[in-house]
């Protein structure tokens, strides 16, 4: 998207305050800022354990201008269900409830509660900002860690041996009204998805890729570039799915080779060209699959 039109589409709301404790270049901090810009001040944030538990600031501080509830690692969706119920009883139907969870709290420990809430179609927006490992505890692998990646528990000699869990497909399989991927590197697409999510009731799920300079091992200033390459290389396609059946690509940017994305990050340094080729094949396979889904959805309309 041309730079000149981006600013008109990003709301003015500024609900994140400076002085928070994110690392320089943190994709997760930016993701929160952008999402809150669209959500606005009538929002309650549920925050299970993740990097943001630190970013939000220690007692007695907060880095958000909206109410924030820190909670245990696996409870994001359950706590949000309770808050939603309370607000509904109080007649506060127009207050947004969001869960802001990392990949560990979503793909791993929080998946049960998320699945439960999604199955009940609880009325909240679940945002997973995905930095692809347990970064807050010092870069341990999660089920969101991509194949081949180094982490402190998947050392270079035995890197991550399984593919990243397809959380979007899992959520789509719950037939929730809205699920989408998004990226801080495509801010208009991101806020548009938040806006669309806000127009729908029920469980809405946003999977936001959040590049992590210290965890992925790249220079701070390349955070946006990394997120952009993830999308351009189709490692992280930007899609949305309604009711688990209507799939669509929301962005189809200029294509870059998977190699460019992988080689830009120290966590993949040990990979051979052949191994990167395997990654590329897997990326192509999944992209084709998504395209099939999108085409089939299109044909239905």
């Amino acid at each position: 998207m041309s730079q000149t039109i981006i600013k008109d589409r990003i709301p003015e709301n500024e609900l994140l305050m400076g002085g928070h404790l994110a690392c320089p270049g943190c994709g997760g901090a930016l993701a929160m800022r952008l999402v809150l810009k669209e959500l606005g001040p009538k929002t309650i944030v549920v925050l299970p354990a993740c990097c943001w538990s630190i970013i939000a600031g220690p007692y007695p501080q907060s880095s958000l201008k909206v109410p924030l509830y820190h909670t245990a690692f696996e409870t994001g969706a359950a706590v949000a269900s309770g808050i939603r119920a309370a607000l509904d009883i109080q007649g506060q139907h127009d207050t947004n409830v969001i869960v802001w969870a990392g990949d560990g709290g979503t793909f791993d420990i929080g998946l049960q509660a998320l699945s439960g809430a999604a199955e009940r179609n609880e009325d909240f927006i679940y945002c997973c900002y995905d930095n692809e490992a347990y970064m807050n505890t010092g870069i341990q692998r999660s089920s969101a860690t991509p194949w081949g990646a180094w982490t402190t528990t998947t050392p270079s000699k035995h890197p991550q041996a399984t593919d990243k869990k397809d959380i979007l497909a899992i959520m789509a399989a719950h037939r929730i009204p809205y699920a989408a991927t998004a990226s801080v590197s495509y801010p208009v697409d991101l806020v548009d998805k938040v806006k669309k999510a806000m127009s729908i009731r029920g469980t809405r799920f946003l999977h936001i890729l959040a590049p992590c300079p210290p965890g992925w091992k790249f220079e701070d200033e390349r955070a946006i570039d990394m997120g952009r390459m993830a999308v351009q290389s189709r490692v992280f396609p930007l899609v949305e799915v309604e009711h688990g059946t209507d799939w669509r690509f929301t962005m189809d940017p200029e294509h870059v080779p998977v190699q460019d994305y992988i080689r830009a990050q120290g966590r993949f340094r040990h990979l051979t060209d052949e191994q990167i080729g395997h990654i590329s094949d897997a990326v192509d396979y999944r992209y084709e699959h998504l395209r099939d889904l999108a085409e089939r959805s299109q044909a239905k309309v």
């Binding site: 549920v46 269900s81 119920a85 439960g116």
Partner: peptide, 19 residues
């Protein structure tokens, strides 16, 4: 809810919101 853990977590959320 889908578990007792979530039952208590949801009760926590509801109570936190004043219910």
């Amino acid at each position: 809810v889908e578990s007792e853990h979530s039952a208590m977590a949801s009760a926590v959320g509801a109570s936190a919101a004043g219910a």
